[in-house]
Simulated scan of single mutants.
Amino acid sequence: MTIRRAGAPDVPALAEMRHEWTVEWSDGETVDDPDYRARFAAWFAAEPGRLWWVAQDGPATVGMLNMVVFTRMPRPGRPVSRWGYIANVFVRPKYRDAGAGRELLDAAIAYARDEDFARLVLSPSERSVPFYRRAGFGPADNLLRWEG
């Protein structure tokens, strides 16, 4: 398994995994959306503050993770700091429970440490909570949420 930063050449594989994620979470229901891949590519290009990692088994892309990076507003007497929001973690079923997800998460955490991020946050599915807890994530009791 190889973990690496992803970029524009990976867009087709990322779009395909996002499609697989959607089908899996909708209990196998497929959606006919002929413009999806073009919309995904345009969205990817418009998200320069989002970092991507992929897991590869040989030439096959088998997992993905992205992180949105936020730069905090400067404060007098303090250096500018950043934080990250981890999103859209997906590993193809055949590769689950074999370390790919943890390696993707470890790569994002290492980046955040190297860049001296103030924090990393995420919004886990109920099923993924144990996975993130094992990696050291805990409740974010100091956040509020608005749902419009």
Score class of each variant (00 low, 15 high):
residue 81 S to H: 12
residue 4 R to F: 06
residue 45 A to R: 08
residue 82 R to N: 13
residue 57 D to P: 04
residue 24 E to G: 01
residue 98 A to F: 01
residue 31 V to I: 10
residue 102 R to A: 14
residue 70 F to A: 12
residue 73 M to S: 07
residue 91 V to T: 11
residue 54 V to S: 07
residue 141 D to Q: 12
residue 121 V to E: 13
residue 79 P to G: 12
residue 23 V to H: 06
residue 68 V to K: 11
residue 73 M to C: 10
residue 107 A to N: 07
residue 67 M to W: 04
residue 76 P to L: 15
residue 93 P to N: 12
residue 76 P to K: 10
residue 55 A to N: 07
residue 79 P to N: 11
residue 80 V to M: 15
residue 100 A to Q: 12
residue 74 P to H: 13
residue 124 P to W: 09
residue 9 P to K: 09
residue 114 D to M: 00
residue 148 G to P: 15
residue 18 R to I: 00
residue 86 I to W: 00
residue 34 P to F: 05
residue 76 P to E: 03
residue 102 R to Q: 12
residue 7 G to D: 15
residue 63 G to V: 09
residue 88 N to Y: 08
residue 54 V to T: 12
residue 135 A to I: 08
residue 113 R to L: 10
residue 26 S to F: 03
residue 109 I to F: 03
residue 120 L to H: 02
residue 78 R to M: 14
residue 135 A to Q: 05
residue 28 G to H: 03
residue 103 E to G: 13
residue 64 M to H: 05
residue 118 A to S: 14
residue 121 V to N: 02
residue 137 F to H: 04
residue 84 G to P: 03
residue 13 A to L: 03
residue 120 L to C: 03
residue 1 M to E: 07
residue 41 A to Y: 04
residue 29 E to T: 13
residue 71 T to K: 10
residue 6 A to P: 06
residue 6 A to G: 12
residue 137 F to S: 03
residue 148 G to N: 10
residue 35 D to C: 01
residue 123 S to A: 09
residue 49 G to E: 13
residue 74 P to E: 10
residue 40 F to Q: 01
residue 94 K to Q: 13
residue 57 D to R: 07
residue 71 T to P: 05
residue 60 A to N: 08
residue 102 R to K: 07
residue 100 A to C: 13
residue 1 M to S: 10
residue 59 P to H: 11
residue 77 G to F: 15
residue 23 V to F: 11
residue 55 A to H: 03
residue 130 P to Y: 05
residue 2 T to A: 10
residue 119 R to L: 15
residue 50 R to F: 09
residue 94 K to Y: 02
residue 41 A to N: 00
residue 17 M to W: 06
residue 47 E to G: 04
residue 10 D to C: 06
residue 45 A to N: 07
residue 30 T to C: 10
residue 140 A to E: 05
residue 81 S to A: 14
residue 8 A to S: 14
residue 121 V to H: 04
residue 21 W to C: 02
residue 89 V to A: 08
residue 127 R to F: 10
residue 139 P to K: 00
residue 125 S to A: 11
residue 108 A to D: 04
residue 138 G to V: 13
residue 86 I to R: 01
residue 102 R to D: 04
residue 66 N to C: 14
residue 127 R to W: 09
residue 2 T to D: 15
residue 31 V to K: 11
residue 117 F to Y: 15
residue 69 V to K: 00
residue 88 N to M: 08
residue 104 L to C: 02
residue 65 L to C: 03
residue 26 S to E: 04
residue 47 E to L: 05
residue 6 A to T: 11
residue 62 V to T: 14
residue 53 W to S: 08
residue 3 I to P: 06
residue 75 R to L: 14
residue 45 A to Y: 02
residue 103 E to H: 07
residue 101 G to R: 04
residue 9 P to A: 02
residue 137 F to V: 03
residue 119 R to M: 15
residue 117 F to D: 04
residue 89 V to M: 15
residue 66 N to G: 01
residue 135 A to D: 01
residue 132 Y to D: 07
residue 97 D to Y: 03
residue 115 E to S: 12
residue 32 D to W: 12
residue 13 A to C: 05
residue 62 V to L: 09
residue 65 L to T: 07
residue 93 P to T: 13
residue 14 L to R: 06
residue 67 M to R: 06
residue 76 P to G: 06
residue 120 L to F: 02
residue 58 G to I: 13
